[in-house]
Every structure is written in structure tokens, then in C-alpha cells.
Amino acid sequence: MKAAVIVFPGSNCDTDCFHALKDVVKVPVEYVWHKERHLPRVDLVVIPGGFSYGDYLRTGAIARFSPIMESVIKHVQSGRVAIGICNGFQILLEAGLLPGAMLRNKTLEFVCKHTWIRTEENLTIFTGQMDPGEILCVPIAHGEGNYYCDDDTLKSLHDHSQVAFRYSSQDGKLGGEFNPNGSRDHIAGIVNKKKNVLGMMPHPERSSEDILGSSDGRKIFESILNALE
């Protein structure tokens, strides 16, 4: 398996993702600058977190039109795998590769803390190493992670088993007190219908080693590696 990490002006989790892939799960990985028009031959594209284009206009709205995105869309349409983390998730939403949109956090605060997320679907490329309902400790750091979609889209997400992760308590209970940003139905991460694209607000790359306080996020990268090898 080979991976590429896309770098936009304002990306700031690109080196973390690169490190988690290269040094933790031992996958060949390279950076791809957003001005490139072509992706190298890779199995996995990672769109990392950060503040691409300063979050101007809307989070992810301008990055979505970077030259590399046409190749990312083709990569996904051909069935290959992509993951967008935090700002990467926002970019995937703006690009229409995942349904819904992001709103400002309900509290209007930038929230930076560890959260518990419950694995809702463990039959995807991204979650195969988890048990059903497994709880992971993964940090968030965002001001706009309040996932929104309309009623029909929410129903469709559930009907097609597209809700990958929801915010929960440490023992898996759902509730407003465990939802850090007000996201609809406590959604922390979703996949597309074909299940080859994952978007999530929590940062698995920041929780891939014990020294970071949690290594739970590593399971997401290991799941991808296991599914693609």
C-alpha cells in the first residue's frame, strides 16, 4: 500500500499524518502539493487537517477547487480510498464527495480536547480492526465541526450504514453532554455510499502512539492497511 498526503496552504496536520503513516504503520507515503494536477500512483489519499486558505469564505470551500482536487475526485470515483481529517473532512464535504456541511460549533468556541467516539460501522475499510461499538479516545481541535445534514440525508446515512463514528461517553452512551460541537445525531465521522471515502473531525494521527496519550487512532490506519494489503 502507498499513500499520499495532500498539502494545502494552511494545512497543519500534514506532517503528523505523514509521520503516523510512515513511522507508525510503516506505509510508503509522499506529500503532494495542492498545485499538482496529478496524483502519484497511490492507494490512499489523506486530506489532512489545518486551516486551508485561512478558512476564508467557508472551511474547505476554496481548497476544494485546488488543482489537485480533480485528481482526488477521479481517484475516489475509481474506487480507491481517501480519508479527510478535520479540515480534510470539510474539504470533502465542500467537494460533494460526502453529504452534508459544517456549521460553527454550537458553543461558538474552538474546542481542543480528547473525545470518545463510538464505532458505529466496523465493516468498512476504515474500521475493520475495531469491534462493533468499540470506543476510541481520539482528540478534536476545531471551531467548525458541527456536522449538519437535512432529515432525508440523515435517514439515508443510517439506511446505507454510512455513519462511521459518533461522539459518546467513555462507556458508549450518547447524549448532548458528550457531543462537543452540536453535530447532528452526534456524528463524528461518515463514509460515502461506496464506503471508500471517510471524513472525520477527530484526529487519528494525533492519537497513534502511546506518547500522545492515546494510540486508539492508529487502529483506523491499521484497518486501512489491513484492507488494502
Binding site: L57, I62, A101, D150
Partner: peptide
């Protein structure tokens, strides 16, 4: 295409 997001 750009200035507004029709979802929200």
C-alpha cells in the same frame, strides 16, 4: 459553484 453552500 463557490459563494454559497446550497446544503446550508
Amino acid at each position: 459553484k463557490l459563494l454559497h453552500n446550497p446544503v446550508i
